[in-house]
Write a protein that binds this DNA or RNA. Structure first.
Lengths: 247, 247
DNA sequence: CTCCCATCAAGTACGGTGTACGTGAACTGG
DNA sequence: CCAGTTCACGTACACCGTACTTGATGGGAG
């Protein structure tokens, strides 16, 4: 797993940042031109400002002032590029301490940090939604969440169900709150949703229109918490009676 | 619906269309070469057999024995093509009668039909997940689900939360059960998941590995029902006391 | 009848994508 | 000095969606 690009481990790599004044007798070549973090930051910046469809090998390369193929020295193809962006987003989160207190609190805390983190990069949401069973940084979060859920006395199939419930809710809610077509690259989410709801026939979709409106007017975080609390209550009610601690 | 006239190879034959407009001056020049249903069926077949990434204007056109641009006479670009596939999938469902009995039963019935319908076309799942707030056939389902949920005594924000909970669960569960990278175009889902789980470090992701294994061994439909029941129980417990009927 | 031209099917071509391949420059250890 | 290795990156290919253009068709007007 850990076979990252261990190419730079030779020791001699002098980063090409604004280091010492004599920045080189030579033009660039043997030491890496960028750090992986630089690439990640550029990719995330690109995605945040110009949307997910603007993220391509070529645009990113242009952003960095280099050619497309150079990126393949930092990233394992398009797939790896997306992974890099997801990583960059999740690294920005500061995960809470969990594992000791009430599992409900931990579930809540974890979910909330995830929610807040993701929401600050709305364009990345589709990426996270479709890659959540693949990327390690997400699985890392999943593992913590599972640990908390396990303390409700679940394991095996029940744990699986509980996890799917929670993660499905988180991703679904996030996705629904700022879905692909409802948020435009420009970024005016609210008006876009409203506009979209307006085009719907209110006779055919009365309640869809109703909740679409409610969704725009309400505060999403409050709704997220409400849904999560409901979910946690359900999980607690269903938990194996003696299983407040691990049974 | 538009009735189709099948043309042989190479020629287009005139056909008096139903409702052939006496639009004054000109009559129709040529009948359509395919029916919309033919196109939809071909698109769905293509997606089912060769995966979502094989669905393109060009491949579909080739499948139909015509050129790419011809499709634009039947479908509004790539976007419309995806809509067509989603439509084709959801049209295959036979929706239950709802609206009269217990809302819990209706939620269950609707969710289950949706689940079963979608699962029979696993490659379309990502499409449905990301287009669920956009496509009318999906909104149609959403409207029915909302109607059922409303009978738990909710409206406005609470209804929104309940809906997000349920639909997030459905989509999340489906997506998780047969996600993009976990199911390969070839179609060997179970072994792929196992293989994936094997590559994970069990020290770092002990519980992820545990539920991944459980997920392969268990029957998904049972887990889906279990999660759904838990969710419904939570919704029922939280329902406004007097609100068994619409209040 | 002939001719016109509205209409729709379909081809060509353009600008995009991801990336295999190859070349060559810069460094390192012998 | 000379391999050998690592990296930058230009070129090229196969693919994508689709704007634009062409071409066939056949009803009405003359």
């Amino acid at each position: 797993m850990a076979e990252e690009s261990r190419t730079g481990a030779g020791g001699r790599l002098r980063e090409s940042e604004s280091g010492g004044g004599a920045r080189g007798r030579r033009a660039v070549a043997a030491p890496k031109k960028f750090s992986r973090e630089q690439v990640a930051a550029a990719a995330l910046r690109l995605t945040d400002t110009r949307g997910l469809e603007a993220l391509s090998m070529r645009t990113l390369a242009a952003e960095l002032g280099t050619g497309p193929m150079t990126l393949y020295n930092y990233v394992d193809g398009r797939e790896g590029l997306e992974l890099l962006v997801v990583e960059a987003v999740l690294e920005g989160a500061d995960w809470p301490e969990t594992g000791s207190g009430d599992w409900r609190d931990d579930v809540r805390k974890l979910a909330e940090v995830f929610w807040r983190t993701i929401r600050s990069h709305p364009h990345v949401i589709p990426l996270i939604a479709e890659r959540r069973t693949v990327d390690e940084p997400i699985l890392d979060f999943g593992e913590r969440m599972l640990e908390a859920l396990a303390r409700s006395g679940r394991s095996g199939r029940e744990l699986l169900v509980a996890f799917r419930l929670v993660s499905g809710f988180i991703v679904g809610f996030t996705q629904g709150a700022a879905g692909r077509a409802l948020i435009s690259p420009g970024g005016e989410s609210a008006s876009a949703v409203i506009a979209r709801a307006r085009t719907l026939d209110p006779e055919r979709f009365p309640r869809v229109v109703e909740i679409a409106t409610a969704s725009v007017e309400g505060d999403r975080t409050g709704e997220f918490r409400a849904g999560l609390d409901l979910l946690i209550a359900g999980l607690a009610a269903d938990a194996r009676p003696g299983g407040g601690r691990e049974g």
